[in-house]
């Protein structure tokens, strides 16, 4: 069952935002990027500066303002349930770094599916 995000607000939206090296490392982990120590050192202060510059936004819009996720208010765009031509397996696999038995070959998978 999903949990609602945003139950807590970011720390210090009105004051300084400090994003630590460890926090960047955690985010890099979530984003599956193997950042080096040097990259982490370099990125942390840059992100702090960027976040500080965007932090003003937290107080701009009042609760009653509806969010806009789509610039134009379209709804109900559907497709008929009719098969259309796709790719052949050969096309699908043509750019694969590795394949075997008409399947994509990937290195061993560590964890179970989420």
């Amino acid at each position: 069952m999903p949990e609602i995000p945003g139950s807590s607000s970011p720390r210090g939206t009105s004051g300084r935002i400090e994003i630590s090296r460890d926090e960047v490392a955690h985010l890099a982990d979530l984003a599956r990027i193997d950042l080096s120590d040097a990259e982490l050192e370099h990125l942390a202060p840059q992100l702090s500066v960027i976040l500080e510059s965007v932090a003003s936004i937290a107080e701009v819009a009042a609760d009653e303002i509806p969010p806009t996720s789509h610039a134009l208010p379209l709804t109900n765009v559907f497709r008929d349930d009719v098969v259309t031509p796709g790719l052949t397996a050969e096309q699908a696999l043509a750019m694969a770094p590795a394949s075997e038995g008409q399947r994509f070959s990937v290195p061993r998978i560590l964890g179970e599916e989420a």
């Binding site: 497709r79 349930d81 009719v82 098969v83 259309t84 031509p85 796709g86 790719l87 052949t88 397996a89 699908a92 696999l93 038995g101 008409q102 399947r103 994509f104």
Partner: peptide
């Protein structure tokens, strides 16, 4: 048991040749 997938026109049937029911969207 729709004819096609949720977001593309590939067949949604069980047991085809591997990677034969794919398109740019579902891939």
């Amino acid at each position: 048991n729709t004819n096609t997938k949720m977001f593309c026109g590939c067949p949604a049937v069980f047991g085809g040749e591997p990677n034969s029911q794919v398109c740019p969207t579902c891939l």
